[in-house]
Write a protein that binds this DNA or RNA. Sequence first.
DNA 1: TAGATTGTTAATCGATTAACAATC
DNA 2: TAGATTGTTAATCGATTAACAATC
Lengths: 216, 216
Amino acid sequence: MESREISQAVIRRLPRYYRYLGELLENGVERISSNDLSKRMQVTASQIRQDLNNFGGFGQQGYGYNVKYLYTEIGKILGLEEEHGMIIIGAGNLGHALANHAGFEKRGFVLKGIFDVNPTLKGMTIRGVPIYMMDELEDFMKNSDIEIGILTIPKAKAIEVANQLVDYGIKAIWNFAHTDLNLPDNVIVENVHLSESLMRLSYNISRYNEEHRAEK
Amino acid sequence: MESREISQAVIRRLPRYYRYLGELLENGVERISSNDLSKRMQVTASQIRQDLNNFGGFGQQGYGYNVKYLYTEIGKILGLEEEHGMIIIGAGNLGHALANHAGFEKRGFVLKGIFDVNPTLKGMTIRGVPIYMMDELEDFMKNSDIEIGILTIPKAKAIEVANQLVDYGIKAIWNFAHTDLNLPDNVIVENVHLSESLMRLSYNISRYNEEHRAEK
DNA sequence: TAGATTGTTAATCGATTAACAATC
DNA sequence: TAGATTGTTAATCGATTAACAATC
């Protein structure tokens, strides 16, 4: 087993490489050097080469990287070649927004169901995906191939439902609730804490204001 | 001027401290040591003390940290004592979801307007906040005190509107569009790239699957 | 072949952890 | 006062950048 641990810092940058390469591809760019890419992305060329070489030598000396090839390879690394079944728990505003986001589908993320407690939603669909009641969750999980559970419910419920999902064999949770989930190691958790993002924003505003006050 | 630069790593953790302290406060906990907090948050006590000491000595030897005091101080650092006027550009699903999120208000983030190009939305409101047409944006910006522009529109439009907002004097942009914004240094940008978050999730699923395959 | 650019090693920089004296 | 726990310095670890030989 040669699997060396890839650092989180690298993984965080990977989707961004993927995005830039996708744009280059759309623009018909065939090849790119780490140097050119570094200028567009505002990272060092050295970092790009180091990052990519974690996964293998995708480039060619004297030539650079073939955009299409690199794009495809990073896609594979990110697991975008396989299909990932998903369910959304919580058909509120955010649940709706995510359910309506068609873009996920073309990357292999297929929404198979939406769950809520509100009985008036029963039988409705969003973009063709049915809304089920929470008491149908267990059966649904048994009979469908679901890897990812998306939690768009309040934190107290989120912790409870996360544990349920783990019991039903979920592989990963995309957590939008304002809480950390302490789940077994074999369950992957990716948090999107919007309020924390907004606080970082306001931190930076405050800092900027302070600096400017100081300048006077 | 003694302003030393605080690292992004520290800033990224700050809102999480704030969240945990808020919960402790709700639970009536009066004081906490870096050691106790470290166990709850799964970070080292050393890191907590280092992080906090970037901003001043909030603790007391032999006692620990007063929860309420520390909570308040971190709130100040994060700029949650001041009011921040916000507008949302894009009254789609995500725009709706954010507009309906009442929680931001109590942290000082006040939504003052929502903008869209769809004329059928004109005059409607979300949670009491009016929806305006894009051609009203300039006037609105002149007459209201808006710090934060929230972009929930497709990437091509996002770049264009971001530049407009900069012209109108916006201070910060909370960017949900799948693109980077290259704006002047004095404009703060905080990105929420949901698709990148989802890709990190699927990367981790793939890695986990590989490891397990290897185990056999 | 000569020029370009990678892959990779070494050097630097920064962030995290450990340790402990200061002090409540 | 004795015990607890901070604030802070020093040691370690990891990530980024620089440099350059390998090679297309």
